[in-house]
Design a binder for these strands. Structure first.
Length: 235
DNA sequence: CGCCAGGCCGTGT
DNA sequence: ACACGGCATGGC
């Protein structure tokens, strides 16, 4: 059965929507976008893979000082130079070539223009991004949503934990598929207009990260969480 | 000092 | 299809 169809799915979707409302009330607008430039969002999406954002900021600062926070800037850097600049956020042997591969795709198929890339329909572009090295479902959707303004839902480790700990999905957190969570998020905002969904997906993911950092890491820190899950009581 | 962080990929079953 | 280890650094 597909997520969102069926009584249990609709119930979970409604509860997820309610979580968004609670988080929005508790934390307010997150301004993840358009605060940063599209390319900065893309670089952040790569650099933050299993990495604390604090470390990503150091790398972005290095890139800023090297005037490499633009497509031209990244293009002009050698892979080796890029590796050095992004060292603080780890996994640089993989991330540096991956970032260069993104720019290579941008140049080869979109004349180096992010605006041109953004014109491609979401589904086709998502497939292209997923074919790139170092781009999985979360990074692809982060690029689509935050850098290119497409109305695609996002999921991440925090949402996985939240959904699992609140009983919105079956099974242990680790075996809950990304696509399942994304579909659940789509269902949660299905009644909103297309234009509004981009904003809602954007804010919801940012809010998920905000509450996740504070209260829903690998080890639960439920104290004071606005979502008030009863994890402490259950375990 | 040990655990954790806004994943992804190759390998083995 | 799914589990599991490796990737690397810095913060707490």
């Amino acid at each position: 059965m597909k997520t969102g169809s069926g009584r249990a799915g609709q119930q979970a979707a409604r509860r997820l929507r309610r979580m968004h409302d609670l988080l929005a009330a508790a934390y307010g607008p997150q301004h993840w976008w358009p605060a940063a430039t599209p390319l900065e969002m893309i670089l952040g999406a790569y650099l933050t893979q299993n990495t604390a954002w604090k470390a990503v900021e150091r790398s972005l600062e290095n890139l800023r000082r090297a005037e490499a926070l633009t497509v031209e800037g990244i293009r002009a850097l050698s892979v080796d130079a890029l590796r050095v600049l992004i060292q603080p956020s780890g996994f640089y042997q993989r991330k540096a070539p991956s970032i260069k591969a993104f720019v290579a795709l941008l140049d080869a198929e979109f004349s180096g223009s992010l605006e041109a890339m953004a014109q491609m329909p979401s589904e086709a572009l998502r497939a292209k991004l997923l074919a790139l090295p170092g781009v999985g479902p979360e990074t692809a959707d982060a690029i689509l949503l935050y850098a290119l303004g497409h109305a695609v839902p996002m999921a991440d480790e925090y949402l996985r934990r939240i959904a699992t700990r609140h009983g919105l999905v079956e099974g242990e957190a680790k075996i809950v598929r990304y696509e399942h969570l994304a579909a659940l998020t789509r269902a949660a905002f299905a009644e909103d207009s297309a234009a509004r969904r981009t904003i809602l997906y954007n804010e919801f993911h940012a809010l998920t990260v905000a509450v996740g950092k504070a209260h829903c890491g690998r080890t639960a820190r439920c104290e004071g969480c606005p979502l008030e899950c009863d994890l402490a009581l259950r375990s």
